[in-house]
């Protein structure tokens, strides 16, 4: 039986991790786990640590122990996040050549490669996966980022043939649905609604998803409810704040409070960076017309 399945040992920690409950992941007790499960939960814990911004701590912790490919892959990601991009890529290359079949190498290596701008390499690596939903989810995300929605949808269909009704697959399906649009918006909404209503997966991230689905469906009051629920659960999450801002723009309301919090929480957030870029772009473009202005 699949370790991640409903009854597997890793089910809880897996779900916690993919719901972004990193602190709970770190606190999760793995006592009594079988060896492979224990290793996998360690990896989740390291990844949770990285997600919490403690990449360098993970690097130093894994400095000497390169006992397994999986841990090495974690180290690669930690290196990347800690800014040692070249070291990271080198390690990943090494792992890809020697341990390309390892699921963790695929996923973590895939992330590193993608972040380093080598999306095609990442996809190549990920394509070697054997029934790994994490790999599928990552593939889907990369495909979406490449605007290859059809290929992303295909991945989902393929994975559904063998995959369990799993949180990751559900989420990936929702991403694809939201990218396809039309009738699929409602489907995405149902996915997120189900997640938000299930006690074990009701959290800020899933509520953000529900809010986005509502926005896509044009149901702003409902979206606002969902965003408020997300804010209640985590008022400092950048994902919540960004989408709150977007919703408030759509509602024609003042969103400065969220913007301020966002600037404090994560000044280098993609949303803010993008804003600055666009702001600069605007100025450049507008400058071309200044000659025409006659007061």
């Amino acid at each position: 039986m699949d370790q991640f399945s409903d009854s597997g040992e890793l089910f809880v920690i897996h779900n916690l991790f993919y719901q972004g409950a990193y602190k709970e992941v770190l606190a999760h007790s793995t006592a009594g786990y079988s060896a492979p499960a224990e290793l996998q939960s360690r990896i989740y814990k390291y990844r949770a640590q990285i997600a919490l911004g403690e990449a360098s701590a993970v690097v130093s912790e894994l400095e000497d122990t390169e006992s397994s490919a999986a841990l090495a892959a974690v180290k690669a990601l930690a290196l990347f996040k800690a800014g040692q991009i070249d070291d990271s890529l080198e390690l990943v290359q090494e792992l890809v050549e020697s341990e390309g079949e390892d699921a963790n190498v695929q996923v973590l290596g895939g992330i590193v490669l993608y972040l380093a701008g080598k999306a095609e390499d990442a996809l190549l690596l990920l394509s070697q996966h054997e029934n790994s939903l994490a790999a599928v989810a990552l593939t889907v995300q990369i495909r979406l980022a490449q605007n290859k929605i059809d290929l992303a949808a295909k991945e989902i269909v393929l994975a559904k043939r063998w995959g369990q009704d799993n949180l990751l697959l559900n989420l990936a399906e929702a991403w694809v649905d939201l990218s396809i649009g039309g009738d699929k918006y409602q489907n995405a909404f149902y996915i997120y609604e189900e997640l938000t209503q299930t006690p074990s997966s009701s959290n800020a991230r899933t509520f953000v998803g529900q809010a986005v689905a509502d926005i896509q469906l044009g149901r702003y009051p409902e979206a606002e409810d969902a965003i408020n629920s997300a804010l209640e659960r985590d008022g400092e999450s950048t994902e919540v704040l960004v989408n709150a801002i977007i919703l408030y723009i759509l509602l024609g309301r003042n969103y400065s409070q969220f913007l301020e919090t966002l600037k404090v929480q994560d000044p280098t957030n993609a949303f803010l960076v993008d804003y600055e870029e666009k702001s600069a772009l605007f100025d450049t473009c507008a400058a071309q017309y200044t000659a025409l202005i006659v007061e």
Binding site: L77, A137, W175, R205, V212
Partner: peptide
């Protein structure tokens, strides 16, 4: 809109 993606 920005959906939470895969971790990392």
């Amino acid at each position: 809109a920005y959906l939470p993606g895969n971790e990392g």
